[in-house]
Design a protein around this nucleic acid. Structure first.
Lengths: 344, 344
DNA sequence: TACGGTCCTGCAAACGATTGCAGCACAGCG
DNA sequence: CGCTGTGCTGCAATCGTTTGCAGGACCGTA
C-alpha cells in the first residue's frame, strides 16, 4: 500500500498510535519490546505498518554509533579469485543484518589509505581485508580506532590479527602427493612471489611435501615468478626447463602460473601431460575447459568468506577476544593435465 | 600523526581553533569556504589536520539526507559477466565521492524486495540494477520515492527508465557477418531465453542480420535455450543438429551457450571449426584458452558500468531529465572456432 | 557623526532516532 | 490505610553536522 511522498518518521507513527516517540522506538525494536505493554506495542506496530514506516538507519546509526556496515577490501573484483569469497561474506553478513561495502585497492597503498579513510568516516563497524599487503601504519591506525579487522587469504604473522585462509601447505602436499603417486620423481615448482604469504607458504609446503616424499629438491627445481600472472608463469617455467630439462612434473603455486606453464611447454614443443604433468592451485572456473583440463587444488572460497564474516561478527558481538587463525581444507581436483611419467 | 582514542568531532576542532562549530563546518566544506575569512579558514584547517579530524558522514547524512551511497543490484557476483561492470561503476562513483553498496539478488523477487528495503532504510541516493527482471511493483515504489534508477544490460521498454547496454543487434550482426564472410550459408542460432531482453534482442538481431545477408531463416535453424547455461546450450544445439544436420555454423546468444555447443558437437563426433563454426557472445575471460579458442563478440563491460554510473550521477546532480537508453558498441574477437565451411 | 553596506562569525534549531531517568497507576502486602 | 514494588510511558538530552538568521565590526560616504 502507501508509497507516500514525504518520508514517514517515528514521530508520525507516534502521533498515529497516540503515544510518545520513545515508546514507538521501544515497541518497534524487538529487544526492547518487552518494556512496553503488549497491546500498546500491537497498536504501534499496526500504525507503523499502515503508514509504511521505514526506520532511518542513518539516524539510528548516529545515535548508536553503529552503522551495521562492514568494509571489505580486495585488490580487484575482476580477479576470479574474489567473487566467491565476497559472496560468502555477503551471505553471512546479510543474515546477521549487516551490509558490506566493497572496495578495490589494486594493492595500491594510496588507494588503500583513501578507502580506509572514506570507510572510516562512514563509520563502518569492522573490516575484512583480502589485500596482499596492508600498510603497517594503516593497520596501527585501525587498531587504535579499535575497529575489528579480519584478514583473508593471507596472514600477518607478527601483528595479532585474526585471519582465515586455505591451508596452503596442505594443498601443495596434496598436489605433490598426487604426482609422486603417479610415479614422478623429478618434480619442479613454479613458485609465487615470496613477499606474498600465499606464495611463501606454498613454497614451504612444496619443500616439506617433497622431503616427506623422500625426494631431494635441488635449487634448480624451483623458480620464483615475480607475480601471479600467466606471463610470469611462462617465464618461470621456461627458466626451469632451461636448467632442469628432465623434469616430468611441475607444481605451480597458482592456476595462472600453471596456464603460463602450458604456454612455455608449447613454445618448447613439449606436451602436457605426455611430457610434463602440471598442477595448478585455486581451481578457478572453467579450468575443465582448458586443453588439457588442468588438475588443480580447490580452495573453498565461499566458505572462506563465510568463516571470515563469522569471525568478524563474533568480535563485533563482543565475543571471544582470542586471535584465531583458521585454515580451511583444500581438496585436489584431478583432471587431464597430470599422468604417469612417460619415461621412467 | 595522532590516532587518538575518542573520535574527534567538529566541536573539538572549534575549541582548538577558537571559533564556533558552525564556522568549522563552513571552513572545512570547500563550497562554503568562501563564506569565511581566509585566515580563519586556514587556522581551522590547520587545527583539523592537527587533531586528525574525520568528518562523520553519518551525521552529515542525517542532516543533509544524502548518504552519498548508491545501491547496486546484480543477480550474482559470481557470474563473470558482472565484476567488470561493477568495477566500472565503482571507479566512476569513487571519483564523484560516492560509494556503492552491492547486493546479490539471485533474480529472486523476495531477495530483491528485502534488499531494496534495506538499502532504502540506509538512505541510498540512487540505484543501478543489472537484475534480469525488476518487479513492477518495486519499480513503482522506487519511482514514488523519487530515487533515481538506472538499468544495466537490459531495458524496460514501457516504464521510462534510463538504461545502458551493449548494442545486441549490432553484436549479432557482427557475428553473423563474420561467418557469412567466411562463406557459410546454413547458419543456425542457439537463442537465449526470450523473456530476457538480451536473449530477445539477440534473436531479433540474428533474423535481421541474416535477412540483410540475403539468407532465409527457416524455423528449424533456431533453437531457444531455457537459460544461459552450458547445459541448456548443449541441449539446444543437439536439438538444432537433429532437425538441421547440415548447418555449418552456429551463432550462440552467449558464451556459455556456445561452450554448450562444443559439448554437443563433441557428443556427436563433430569437430569445431572443421565441421561447424561457433560464435559466442560476451567474450568472457579465458575464452582464448578453450579448445578451440572461441570467437566471440566482446562487450565493453567496464565501459557499461562507467556509463551507467555517469547516467546516475547526472540525475543526482539534477541534470537532464530526459530518459536515455544508451547502447555501446560491441566488437568481434575472431579466434579459432570459426573457419570457412569445409563442404560448400 | 550618522548611516548603509559588506564581511564575517556566532547562535540555535533542525535531521530522526535511542535511552537514562523520572513519574504515574496500580497491585499486593502488612 | 499506607507503603513498597512493578510495569509502563513520557520527557528531554544526545549523537555530529549543517544552515538560516541575526548581529557585530569595520569601512566609506554624506
Amino acid at each position: 500500500m502507501s508509497g507516500g511522498r514525504a518520508p514517514v518518521t517515528i514521530r508520525d507513527v507516534a502521533r498515529a498510535a497516540k503515544v510518545h516517540p520513545g515508546t514507538v522506538s521501544r515497541a518497534l525494536n524487538t529487544d526492547t519490546r518487552a518494556l512496553v505493554n503488549p497491546e500498546t506495542a500491537e497498536r504501534v506496530i499496526e500504525a507503523a505498518e499502515r503508514l509504511g514506516y521505514r526506520p532511518n538507519r542513518i539516524a539510528r546509526g548516529l545515535k548508536t554509533s553503529r552503522s551495521h556496515t562492514i568494509g571489505v577490501l580486495i585488490p580487484d573484483i575482476t580477479n576470479p579469485l574474489f567473487p566467491p569469497i565476497l559472496r560468502g561474506i555477503e551471505d553471512r553478513l546479510e543474515d546477521a543484518g549487516y551490509t558490506s561495502l566493497i572496495v578495490n585497492t589494486d594493492n595500491d597503498p594510496e588507494r588503500e589509505r583513501s578507502h580506509l579513510e572514506a570507510m572510516g568516516s562512514r563509520q563502518v563497524d569492522g573490516f575484512i581485508s583480502a589485500t596482499a599487503r596492508l600498510d603497517r601504519e594503516l593497520l596501527a591506525e585501525l587498531a587504535s580506532r579499535s575497529t575489528p579487522l579480519v584478514l583473508v587469504n593471507r596472514s600477518f604473522e607478527d601483528a595479532r590479527v585474526p585471519a582465515v585462509a586455505v591451508d596452503d601447505r596442505r594443498g601443495i602436499r596434496l598436489a605433490v602427493g598426487h604426482v609422486i603417486e603417479l610415479g614422478h620423481e623429478r618434480i619442479g615448482h613454479v613458485a609465487g612471489p615470496q613477499n606474498l604469504s600465499t606464495g611463501h607458504r606454498r613454497y614451504l609446503g612444496f619443500l616439506e611435501a617433497m622431503r616427506s616424499g623422500g625426494i631431494e629438491v635441488p635449487d634448480e627445481h624451483v623458480c620464483f615468478a615475480a607475480a601471479f600472472t600467466e606471463e610470469e608463469g611462462a617465464a618461470a617455467c621456461t627458466d626451469l626447463l632451461d636448467v632442469a630439462p628432465d623434469l616430468t612434473a611441475i607444481v605451480a603455486a597458482n592456476d595462472l602460473l600453471a596456464i603460463g606453464c602450458y604456454d612455455a611447454l608449447e613454445a618448447r614443443g613439449l606436451r602436457c601431460p605426455d611430457d610434463v604433468s602440471i598442477v595448478g592451485f585455486n581451481d578457478m572456473p572453467f579450468l575443465d575447459r582448458l586443453r588439457p583440463p588442468l588438475t588443480s587444488v580447490r580452495v573453498p572460497q565461499r566458505e572462506i568468506g563465510k568463516v571470515a564474516a563469522d569471525l568478524l561478527l563474533e568480535r563485533l558481538s563482543g565475543g571471544s577476544e582470542a586471535v584465531r587463525e583458521i585454515l580451511l581444507e583444500p581438496t585436489l581436483v584431478v583432471r587431464g593435465s597430470t599422468a604417469p611419467p612417460r619415461r621412467l
